[in-house]
Design a protein around this nucleic acid. Structure first.
Length: 780
DNA sequence: CAGTGAGCGAGCTTCCGCTTGACTT
């Protein structure tokens, strides 16, 4: 039996460390926290110094009983959870739950999983830091109090099953407020002028931008007129060195951002793939806020750079974290072995690994050096100048392996073509010819909608959330129906281009698509209503700085400067009072908005949230004639829908013809337009306008749907035609009434008899639905 | 899913932060 039991949080980490230590050590994992507050409302006794009731959740019982047994047999138990607030609390919970003895327990910490770091830690054990534990308890209790007192207020005043919390409610607020900024944004147009100059020599053409823009068409054309007979001359020429340095190695948040931009991964996909890489020993821990690399890693990176690129490419760098809330219990995310430039695995694993490898290697490489040239070109007839920028790379440095992208790279930005071109040899005073000068109408752009990754970036800047919660938070706000991730089609708009060529000015009108969005976060009506409600009644909680402020107090607790129960008391009593007041005084929030009067009937038109989502109502409940209702379509919101668009929703359902002796009607449901035929539903393809569907189109759509359904169908039964055996995404299944039943292995779907199908369905109904893990998806 | 939108009311929902597999129509 091992004399020493060492407990870490992650099983993959346990395996690695066991390899570093001798057979005297058994290394086990707690799988994160082993206890949590009970799920009920009596988890915290607020009248009695916030005394907490903890329990070991069902899925942790086995871990705890195994650890308990091993701890009893060991001479010394080493608590080696992470060195941060949560890690310290895990050690304390282990100490309490496993019934450890003070004199047989040692607390150790390390920030990197390397042999010297582990051995050093074992040589320097300490005691559990109860100040840090108290800071964690304050954090945990505050989050529970906020979440479990606010959410029920929403159930009463808005809608059941909603939720609010310190983190999620701010995430929703960011998205709601960004959407409103976009809605109220006023686009302005200006003319941007670009010239193509030639030196006179063959093929020596380059581009230069005018230093100013023109607000009106008249000013732009006046400028081009003046250019007709102008002479151009280089008035100044400046060349200066420039350099660019590599970014630090990845943290969770920067990995999520870069994987989103470069690989198109969602935040959760990045984490799933990274988890696989971590478990197979290819990268270090993937939930980290640290940009630090271990000495071992710095050496390995240095060796690899010298070997692969030469030592002029190596530059030792130590990065400091910029994010305020960082706890830095781990290293930055880096490859375990720098000499592995790529790995075996599936495609996404390979790509993510390469991204991590490149970023980590580049962070230890020398800067890239450039020579930047700026030429200012005078116009004989005008005061403005054209400016040409050129850039020549003198030494590639870290750019040999890695170019960091930015959010702006994703947007199509026609204004941003300037910069890095190569200029021909130029000299001061040189005369130039203008081949072509164009003045193009360009529009100002509203702030960008959040992507999952840019929301994570913003949350991290505000110090809200932790590496382990960024991905789950994004799921939560979507599962609650506060936010949707969607593509939206853009609108086309026209713009003018004036060009001066061969002494003539031509006007051209072009069209472009604007406002198209891909995988962006949009608020829903319920998200907006909940947000406004929280801002009205709980301004302090949804304040962008609330987390940062309480974090300061948690830090004081951690340093022994503040009593954790005192901190909670001064927070809780005014907060609880607000909760009580709100329950007493607040009206039910339905997000109602009046749109005006329906010209056809003279009745009031309003929009609000109902049981089935947002809808328009014409007329009022106490009118003699009943009000008429229609659901809003996806993409329409209460706060932005126009009277015209709202009335348009009532032009349907509409008969479009008949097929097989039954009428076909087109209508718009919550999930978009559809055709109803013989009590069946057929969704309209996205490119078909529901208001102008023809009979032929409708028949075509119905036929296509039937063909697709027939392809899925394996068999039906004479005994009950509603029962079907179908081919699904994960193999064959039975559709029996409202439930779908999986077909057990070893059964051929096409050989099933009706009796067998019935038996399977009934067995499935009796069997209580297996619950997934603690993280199984819940229905939204 | 989609057509609806009254009202009653039992019983339920909910937080953030550590961790992995189990699970999916």
């Amino acid at each position: 039996m091992a004399k020493n039991l060492l407990i870490v949080e992650s099983p993959a980490k346990a395996k690695t460390i066991e390899g570093y230590l001798g057979k005297d050590f058994m290394v086990k994992s707690s799988y994160g926290h082993i206890r949590d507050l009970v799920k009920t409302d009596d988890a915290i006794d607020v009248l009695n110094n916030f005394t907490q009731k903890y329990e070991v959740p069902a899925d942790k019982k086995a871990v705890v009983s195994e650890l308990k047994k091993l701890a009893k047999e060991a001479d010394v138990v080493w608590l080696a959870s992470d060195e941060d607030r949560e890690g310290e609390a895990i050690s304390w919970h282990l100490f309490e739950t496993l019934g450890l003895k003070e004199d047989k327990t040692k607390r150790i910490v390390f920030h990197e999983i390397t042999k010297p770091a582990i051995l050093r830690a074992i040589d320097n054990p300490r005691k559990i830091d109860y100040n840090l534990v108290n800071a964690q308890q304050a954090r945990r209790v505050l989050d529970r109090l906020v979440g479990f007192e606010l959410s029920p207020v929403l159930w009463k005043k808005v809608k059941p099953s909603l939720s609010a919390g310190r983190v999620q409610s701010v995430a929703v607020r960011l998205i709601v407020e960004r959407e409103r900024e976009i809605n109220k944004f006023k686009t302005t147009a200006a003319y941007k002028v670009v010239a193509i100059f030639s030196t006179g020599k063959q093929k020596e053409l380059f581009r230069a931008d005018l230093s100013e823009r023109f607000d009106t068409e008249a000013e732009a054309t006046e400028f081009l007129q003046a250019c007709k007979n102008a002479a151009y001359k280089i008035e100044s020429l400046e060349t200066r060195p420039a350099k660019r340095s590599p970014a630090p190695p990845f943290t969770t948040s920067t990995l999520q951002q870069e994987a989103s931009r470069k690989l198109g991964f969602s935040v959760s996909r990045t984490m799933t793939v990274a988890q696989k890489l971590y478990e197979s020993g290819k990268i270090t821990y993937m939930r980290t806020d640290s940009v630090n690399l271990s000495e071992t890693a710095l050496d390995a990176a240095s060796n690899e750079i010298n070997k692969a690129y030469g030592n002029q490419y190596h530059q030792l760098r130590k990065f400091k974290t910029k994010s305020a809330g960082a706890q830095e219990a781990h290293e930055a995310i880096r490859p375990t072995y720098f000499d592995q430039h790529s790995i075996e695995g599936d495609n996404s694993e390979k790509r993510l690994y390469e991204l991590i490898w490149k970023r980590a290697i580049a962070s230890q490489m020398s800067e890239a050096r450039f020579e930047k040239t700026t030429a200012k070109i005078g116009i004989s007839t005008r005061a403005e100048q054209f400016i040409a920028n050129g850039e020549v790379m003198k030494f590639d440095g870290f750019l040999k392996v890695y170019i960091e992208s930015t959010d702006e790279d994703q947007d199509v930005n026609l204004d941003d073509e300037s910069g890095n071109a190569i200029l021909p040899p130029l000299s001061k005073g040189q005369d130039l010819k203008a081949q072509e000068i164009t003045a193009t109408e360009r529009f100002s752009r509203p702030p960008a909608r959040y992507t999952e990754a840019s929301l994570v970036k913003k949350l991290e800047e505000l110090g809200i959330g932790r590496p382990s919660t960024y991905a789950p938070t994004i799921s939560t706000v979507q599962n609650r129906g506060y936010v949707v991730k969607e593509d939206r089609e853009g609108k086309s708009r026209t713009y003018c281009v004036f060009s001066l060529k061969n002494g003539e000015i031509n006007k051209d009108t072009k069209t472009e698509i604007t406002g198209a969005e891909k995988a962006k976060l949009f608020p829903t009506d319920i998200g907006a209503v909940v947000n406004d409600f929280l801002i009205q009644y709980f301004k302090g909680i949804v304040d962008y700085h609330f987390t940062a402020n309480v974090e300061k107090e948690f830090d004081e607790i951690a340093h022994g400067l503040k009593e954790w129960t005192e901190m909670l008391k001064s927070f809780y009593s005014p907060f609880h009072q607000e909760v009580e007041n709100t329950i007493q005084t607040a009206e039910k929030a339905r997000g109602e908005r009046d749109l005006g009067i329906d010209p056809a009937s003279g009745k009031k038109v309003s929009v609000r949230i109902g049981r089935f989502g947002p809808f328009v109502q014409i007329g009022e409940a106490d009118d003699e004639e009943k009000p008429r209702y229609a659901s809003l379509r996806s993409g329409q919101m209460i706060e932005t829908i126009s009277l015209e668009d709202a009335l348009e929703l009532f032009n349907l359902p509409k008969k479009v013809g008949a097929f097989e002796d039954k009428d076909m009607t087109v209508a718009i449901g919550r999930f978009g337009p559809y055709i109803r035929h013989n009590s069946a539903f057929y969704s309209l393809p996205k490119d078909v306008d529901p208001h102008s569907v023809t009979e032929e189109q409708a028949i075509e759509i119905i036929k296509n749907k039937r063909i697709k359904d027939a392809e899925k169908l394996i068999k039906t039964f004479d005994e009950d035609p509603a029962v079907k055996v179908l081919n699904g995404r994960w193999g064959p299944y039975i559709e029996y009434g409202k439930q779908n039943v999986k077909i057990p292995k070893g059964k051929e779907a096409k050989d099933l008899t009706f009796e067998e199908v019935k038996a399977l369905a009934e067995a499935a109904e009796k069997e209580p639905k297996k619950k997934g893990g603690r993280f199984a998806k819940k229905k939204g």
